[in-house]
Design a protein around this nucleic acid. Structure first.
Lengths: 111, 111
DNA sequence: AATATATTCAACCATTTGGTTGAATGTCAA
DNA sequence: TTGACATTCAACCAAATGGTTGAATATATT
C-alpha cells in the first residue's frame, strides 16, 4: 500500500517544534514565506529550509504569485499518519491491553 | 503539559522503517537484542543503535537478565503521539473532519 | 581456567540536518 | 532605470544519523 517513504517523511517533518509551529501558523490560512518566518528568531533562510522539508512531506503547498510565494497547509499526510498510528495502536496494543501483554510475558518467562 | 522534546523524540524514532520493524517485532512480546537484530541485514551494532533511539523515546524498555537484555515495547508514547495528532487534526481540520461534517449536515437535512 | 556468547563502547566514515552569511534571481514600485 | 522587496541558491559549519569494524566487558558453559 502506502510507500513507507511517505510516512517517514511525514513523521520526520513533524518531529521538529519549529516545523510544527509553521504548520500551526498555516492551519489558520495561507501566508507568505516572510510572514511565516517573522515570529522566529532564526534567519529567513533557515525557515525557508524548514518549509522545504514540509513541502517534501506534502504537508505544505506553494502557490507563487509574482515574487510572493503563498504557502498553505495540506491535511492529507497528517490524516495518513493518524491512520497509521491508530491502526498500529490497534494491532500493537495500547495502555488498555498493556496488562494483558505483561501477563503473557510473565507466563512465557515461567517456562 | 508534555514537553515538546518528548513528542519530538517519539516522532523521530517512528520516522524510520527499521525502527518501526523493531517495534512491530516487540509488539508481540519481549525479545533479546540478538533476536531483534536477527532478521536485519545490517550489523548487530547498527540495530543496537536503533534500539537506543527507541529507548530514548521510551518506546522500548530494557530488562537485563545476566548477559541478556530483554526488550519490550511500551505503548504510552505512541498513545501520546496519537493524542497529539488527533487533537491537532481536530484544530487544524482534516479531510475526515470535513467528511464527518458533511455527513452530519446531510443527516440534519433529512430531518 | 579457557572459551564462547551477549552486548556495549569507541573510533571512524559518509550523509543529513539545522543553522549561518552572502550573492543571485525575479518582481514590484518610484 | 533605479532601487527595494521576496525568495532561493551556494558555500560553509557544527552536530546528529546511520552505518561499519574492532575491542572491551560481563556472563555462561565446558
Amino acid at each position: 500500500m502506502s510507500a513507507p517513504r511517505t510516512l517517514d517523511r511525514t513523521l520526520l517533518a513533524l518531529a521538529d517544534p519549529t516545523r510544527r509551529a509553521i504548520l500551526q501558523r498555516l492551519s489558520s490560512g495561507e501566508a507568505r514565506v516572510t510572514d511565516v518566518a517573522q515570529p522566529f528568531k532564526m534567519s529567513l533562510n533557515a525557515v525557508s529550509k524548514h518549509i522545504l522539508v514540509l513541502e517534501r512531506a506534502k504537508l505544505v503547498q506553494r502557490r507563487k504569485v509574482g515574487r510572493d510565494h503563498y504557502l498553505s497547509y495540506r491535511a492529507e499526510p497528517l490524516d495518513a499518519a493518524a491512520q497509521w498510528i491508530e491502526q498500529t495502536r490497534h494491532f500493537w496494543g495500547s495502555r488498555l491491553d498493556a496488562l494483558e501483554k505483561l501477563l503473557r510475558e510473565e507466563d512465557a518467562n515461567k517456562k
